[in-house]
Each structure stands twice: as structure tokens, then as C-alpha cells.
Design a protein around this nucleic acid. Structure first.
Lengths: 217, 217
DNA sequence: AATTGTTTCTGAACACGTTCAAAACTACTG
DNA sequence: CAGTAGTTTTGAACGTGTTCAGAAACAATT
């Protein structure tokens, strides 16, 4: 490992630790630089923006999500159960950051930001995030119409993004309300899913999926 | 009108004009103060935060939304048509600000912000925004189950918030893609609405509405 | 008119994210 | 070794939103 990587890692670790302990706004570049024993300008040599440091955090949370979700996926092939597991595992991975979630949200939501989950800059991490839900769908044994099965991962990911937004605003203890919403929602999904095969439902479903497809750039 | 109101108005007008012409980030407090012929500190005497100036913008856009939607509501009692009209009118009201929408979004999305559409600080303007969709529902002649009719305004407003988010990210010319999504979505809503009365659909619908009700604080 | 209290206003100051010219360091070449 | 080209690092500087001690303007009372 060269000197360069060493510096970069020191910055990353210092930043991520501070993000967890102090939150987004309280973690200033000057503080990171000081704790990492480097100069302010040097931090900017490696990360063009404070937001780019958040991207590192985003990756960590995501890989933790994958770890947490693996045993759940191994335990059942029922899609609603897998969905609930994936959602709750995601919330678990996010939980250390709830206190400063608003700051992260502001930083992440803007399309011009490097960390926007919808933006072009984060296409790779987004694909990774979607793949969790692709695994959830692919590993399930439920009967799902082909068109739906194909688009479902992205739609579930979008749902998850909405849930995460709800979670940011949720100040119930332990974000219990969000967890309950995830559980009940997943169960409702299980109630409704079988109807997707009904002939007269498929027409509307087809149209809905077509709209969703067109909406994606 | 006292001197105080005069100053306040000068600040508001200067800020809103600049927001429209220069966008959110380019509109600095120093610029507003200079153009309004006052000092920086004086602006802060009237508005505790730059975000609070955005709230004024929010109100303007909303009242324009109401104006635009009135003739549409007068022209039809069909709920899907009224919904489409309300959505498109909303987009029309937003359109002057699309270029700098990311900045506004970042400022508005955080729960700690005074202008967050979901936060407690903006409860009054939110109710006003929801009332547009309440009018859309109340003035319609479609047959809608009572439980659904009661919660529909808030759900449609939530949908509208999602559409607005999509609109921020939409860089198709004239945000055509968002408009198309609104139109097709409204029509699909019209296709699906009659099924809400079907007995075996009502069970799932009841559960969905119950979840939605529980999710709201 | 003078005094007192309140409202309105000022501008310097602070910490922040970010930029940049130049310094310091490293690796390689003649 | 000396020199050169490239990489890494520095710290002062900029413009930003925001704060604050105090000045100025105004209102009310004596």
C-alpha cells in the first residue's frame, strides 16, 4: 500500500467514524483533516467534495445491508417474507445514522450531488442496491407474471427508498413506526400478489408496468 | 403599512424575484440585502433563515396552483380528469423553478428545515396543499368507498410529492416525461378505481388504508 | 423637552466548504 | 550526484449563511 492509499484510507476512516459519532454537519472538513493529521487542502486532493465522503458511507451501509440480508434469504423462499427481511435489514443497517439522517438526506437528495441515489454519478452503487431486491425476487418460489418479475426489483428498491425517506422523518422510539410499516406493507404485498395473475388484473398491471418502464430514462 | 412591513415586503419581493431569475444558490443573502437596500443583519431580523424565504416562495407557488386548478375543477366532475388537471397545474406552477429545483429540494427536504413539506413547521401550508386534492375528490361524482374517499386527498397529495420529486430529476425538454407520467398515471387510476368497490378487493384496500392511517403520526 | 424603553437596523465577525498557487516530496534519467 | 518531471501536501484566501453587540430610530411617559 503506497503512501497515497494510506492517506486516503486515513481520511476515509476518520470521516466515517466522525459521521457515525458526530453526524454529518458536525463533521467538518477541518475536523477530519485535523484528526487525520493532514491539511485541509490535502483532503480535497483525494475527495473533491464532502459529499464524496458520504458516498463511502453509502457503500459501507450497503455492504452491511447485504451481509444482514444473506441469512434471511437463506431461510425462506417466500417473496413477501424475503421482502420484509430485506426492508428490515436495510433499516437495521441505517439505524446508527438516524440522528443525523436529515443532514445526510439534504446532502444526498440533490440531483447535482454525487451521492444522489437517483443521479447518474451513483449508477454503480444503485445497481448494487437494486441487486439486493433482485436476489429477493430471483430466490423466491412465488408465481409471478414474467413482466412483473422483470421490473419488480427496481420497483421494490424504489419502495425501499420511500421507506427510507419515511424513516428519516420517523422519530418514534427505535423508528418502530417505520418497521411496522415495512412489515405490514410486506404482508399486504403478499395478500395482493396472487391477484396479479388474474386475467382482468393483468391489463391494469401491464399498463402500470409500461408507465414505470417509460418513466425510467 | 408600517415601516416594518415595508422592509419585510421589500425583502420578500427581492428574494422571490431573485429566486426566479437566479435560482436558490445564486441568491445570496448579501445580494438580497444589497438589492433591497438594507443590511445583511436586517434581513435576519425578519427571516431567521434563508429557508424561511423559500417558504414565501412555497406559498406563492401554492396559490398559483390553486388559481390554475380552479377552471379545471369547474369543467369536469370526473375524478381521474380532475386529478390529472391538478397534477399538471401543479407542474405548471413549478415550472419556472425547474432549473434551480435541486437547490430548493435540498433546502426543503430536511425535517429540520422550516420548509419541509412533511415537517411540523409547515403544517399549515401542507394542509392548504392537501386541500387542492380534497377539492378534487369532493367535487367528483365517481363512486368511491367511504374509507377511501376520506383518505384519498392525503394519498393523492403524497403521490403529487413523489411526482414533484420525479420532476426535479426530469431533464427531458419541458419536463415532458413528468407530464406524461402524470397523465398516464391519472388514466390508470381511472381504470382501477371502479374495482375498489369489488368485495374481494375491499379487504386489501381496507388493510392498505389502515396501514396508511397508522403511518401518519 | 427630556428620559426611558422598545423596535429596527448595522456591519464586523465567525465557522463553514471549497479553491489554488506554491512548497515539499518522490521517482526516475542523464 | 544533479536535474527534471510528476505526485502529494500545505495553508492562506474566497464567498457563503449566520450571529451579535451595539447604534439609530421611534414611541411613550414624565
Amino acid at each position: 500500500m503506497g503512501k497515497s492509499d494510506e492517506t486516503r484510507n486515513k481520511i476515509t476512516e476518520t470521516a466515517l467514524t466522525s459521521f457515525r459519532e458526530r453526524g454529518y454537519e458536525q463533521t467538518t472538513i477541518r475536523l477530519i483533516a485535523s484528526e487525520a493529521g493532514i491539511s485541509v487542502g490535502n483532503a480535497y486532493y483525494y475527495f473533491p467534495t464532502k459529499n464524496h465522503l458520504v458516498q463511502e458511507l453509502y457503500l459501507r451501509v450497503q455492504s452491511e445491508h447485504r451481509e444482514r440480508v444473506a441469512p434471511i434469504f437463506a431461510s425462506t423462499t417466500d417473496l413477501p417474507a424475503r421482502l420484509e427481511g430485506a426492508l428490515l435489514a436495510g433499516l437495521d443497517s441505517l439505524s446508527p445514522y438516524h440522528d443525523s439522517a436529515p443532514g445526510f438526506l439534504s446532502a444526498a437528495i440533490s440531483p447535482t450531488s454525487a451521492v444522489s441515489p437517483f443521479g447518474a454519478d451513483a449508477a454503480a452503487p444503485r445497481e448494487l442496491a437494486i441487486s439486493v431486491f433482485r436476489d429477493a425476487v430471483d430466490g423466491s418460489t412465488n408465481a409471478i407474471p414474467a413482466e412483473l418479475r422483470q421490473q419488480l426489483p427496481q420497483l421494490l428498491w424504489l419502495l425501499y427508498m420511500g421507506l427510507a425517506l419515511f424513516w428519516v422523518y420517523d422519530n418514534s422510539p427505535g423508528q418502530k413506526r417505520t418497521r411496522r410499516l415495512a412489515s405490514r406493507g410486506s404482508k399486504l404485498f403478499g395478500m395482493v400478489l396472487p391477484f396479479a395473475r388474474l386475467p382482468f388484473v393483468r391489463g391494469a398491471l401491464k399498463e402500470a408496468l409500461d408507465i414505470a418502464a417509460e418513466a425510467q430514462s
